[in-house]
Every structure is written in structure tokens, then in C-alpha cells.
Write a protein that binds this DNA or RNA. Structure first.
Lengths: 178, 178
DNA sequence: TTATGTTTATACACACTGTATAATCGATCT
DNA sequence: AGATCGATTATACAGTGTGTATAAACATAA
């Protein structure tokens, strides 16, 4: 964080871990693998327990709101770090194949929630489900959060804004769920 | 493109330009500056002439559609390259200050279009304008395009999908403009 | 004690960045 | 033609970081 991405050397990581450089290589293999592990670690930390709370909501629109709130909370916890990690991911050549796998969790969650919304509210229409899910995926991505958090919005405001926009896209704009 | 971001060395850039390494340093200063110049060059190439076409549309909703279409076309022209350039930007420490300046053009365009939509259609409400603009900015960003283009969508389909979603966010969902 | 896995120190090869220096080339101006 | 100035190039070098190899030290459990 302090020394920028260029300052992220194996040497310094080892030093801060109170360990020799060789140990890092022994444990992780190389810098790529180290960053991969860090990426996965951060992602794992993101599947916060509170996420179950979202799916326990009886109204799927509330579930959506909580779902978005949880992710925003996670991103807010280390915005710059997550941004850099994702930026680094965009540089990798394997991104084409493995890229958005990292967002697989969010996709799964959205699919489930949209399914429930469709059951109860009848929208979106069957042939538009995949489109809507992808749009929501983009709309509620970290990058979108990063854009919205500027202009002086608090984390909660961004979450509320995202939720509102998501409802508009879903076609359940005005009427609230809770 | 072929050798990944790690393969992007000053040496190779010089070689492909048919020039010595020293010349690159003489002209650009260093690798950072070279990448900055490349970033700006690509961005400048993006302000395609066709963009004026968007603002010449009498109906601001058509303007929005053309506007989105032009950007999608630009991104489609070198998707991987633009992704990497942006990914690199996310790594820079100065991102906090200069980050989204690169999207200033898109913001300006959206502000103008949303202003015209507001004049004619009365939405979005005055106190929500800034929120809507930011949401549109996120929704129609390159990263969103990158998400949507997966799942086998053509560039035109992505543009149409984005436009539709943008209208929903604006609150002019169903009724078309052209 | 022995075997196994982990950590460490040391050394090295390699690639890339960035700087310095001096020579060369080309075009322009006098 | 000769002098001047900017741009290009060759060469050399320092510095830094990655990654590999090797052997020694260490801990732990069988």
C-alpha cells in the first residue's frame, strides 16, 4: 500500500512477514503465484459470513439490497488494495480465460436472487434473464463501486445508489420491498 | 499484445519502431512516460470523429444510443490492449488523484446528454442528476463493456444492452425515441 | 537416531531500467 | 563551404529485482 505496486517486491514481503526471501519462494513458487495467492486470499475474505444474511431475506428485493451492501462493505475495507489487485489481474495474459472467474461468486449470487425476483415479481422476462444478470454484474462490480465512491459518497450511499439502479434495470423501479 | 504486459520492454518497443532504445528514452523520458503517452494516444484515438454524430441527434435518447455505440466501437477495436492499459493505470499510485480523469470525456458527454434528456423528458429529478450521471458512467464504462462482451455478445448487442439499461436507469424505460 | 520437511545464507545468472558519454548524422543558417 | 543544433546511435555501466542452485542449519516426528 505505502510503496505502490512497484514497491511490492518479494524481498519486502518476506521482510514484513519476518521471514527470508527464500522461504517465500519455497512456499509460493514465485511472485506470480504469490500474487495469485493474495488475490484468492482477499477474495476468500470477501465471502463474508454476512453474505448468508442476504439470502435469508424473505423478500428477494431485500436480499438484493443486502447482497449489494455486503460487497460494498468488503470493497470499502481495502479499496485501493483491491483495485490494484484487480488491475494486476487485467495485465495477465491468462485473463481471457480465467478473468471473470474471480467474480463467479457474485454472478452466482445474482443469478439466485434474480431467479427469486422473477418468481415473485414476474420480471425480468425469460429471454432477458441472462442479459439482466450480466448488466447487474457490471453495475455492481468493484469498478462501478470505485467510480461511484468518488464524488464524496459514503459506502452506504453507494450501496443504496447501486441498489436503486439495479431495481430500475430489473424493472421493479419504484415500489420498495421492505 | 503477443508477449503480454511483462514482454512490453523498452527494448522491444524500440525494435518494433525500428529505432534504438536510447531514442525512446530521449523522446519519452522513461517507461512510465511512454505508457502515459500510449494511454493518451489511445484515448485521443477514441474521441472519434463519429462522436459528433451523437450530439447532432435531435432526440437526446438517440444521442445517448449513438454515444454508447461509438464508445463500444472504440473499445471493440482493441479490447485487450485497452484493458491492459487501464489495468496498468489502476496500479499507479497517482490513480487516486488522476485516475478517472481519463474518463472525463465520457463524463462530459453524458452530462450534456442527460441535461438534454432532462429538458425534454423531465427526468431525472434535479436532486438525482449527479447520481444518475455517475451510475451511467459506471454502467457504460469499458469495464462494463468487457463484462458484457463475454457470453458471446457482439459489439452491437452490447451497445444495445447498455443503452436499454441506461434508459431504465434514467427512467425512460419503455418508450423509444426513434 | 534417523528421516523428512522447512528455513536460511550465500552465490549466481539473467533481464530490464535508467543514466552517462561521446560519436555520428542531417538539416538549417550564415 | 563551414558552423551549428537537434536527433540518433553505440557503448558502457550502475542498480535493482527475479529466479535458481546449493548446502548448511533447524525442527519435528517416527
Amino acid at each position: 500500500m505505502e510503496e505502490g505496486f512497484d514497491g511490492f517486491t518479494v524481498e519486502k514481503v518476506a521482510a514484513r512477514a519476518g521471514v527470508s526471501r527464500m522461504t517465500v519462494y519455497y512456499q509460493f513458487g514465485g511472485k506470480q503465484d504469490l500474487l495469485n495467492a493474495l488475490f484468492d486470499h482477499v477474495a476468500a475474505r470477501g465471502r463474508i459470513d454476512r453474505l448468508g444474511e442476504a439470502f435469508r431475506q424473505p423478500d428477494p428485493l431485500d436480499a438484493l439490497a443486502v447482497f449489494i451492501g455486503v460487497f460494498c462493505g468488503f470493497w470499502a475495507s481495502d479499496r485501493v488494495g483491491i483495485r490494484r489487485l484487480r488491475g494486476w489481474g487485467y495485465l495477465r495474459s491468462e485473463f481471457e480465460s480465467t478473468g471473470h472467474e474471480r467474480d463467479a461468486w457474485r454472478r452466482q449470487g445474482l443469478e439466485m436472487i434474480v431467479g427469486r425476483i422473477r418468481e415473485r415479481y414476474g420480471v425480468p422476462a425469460g429471454d432477458a434473464v441472462q442479459d439482466v444478470i450480466d448488466v447487474l454484474l457490471a453495475l455492481t462490480s468493484f469498478e462501478s463501486y470505485d467510480v461511484l465512491v468518488r464524488g464524496g459518497r459514503e459506502e452506504a450511499e453507494v450501496a443504496a445508489l447501486m441498489t436503486e439502479a439495479a431495481r430500475a434495470v430489473l424493472g421493479v423501479g419504484g415500489e420498495a420491498g421492505g
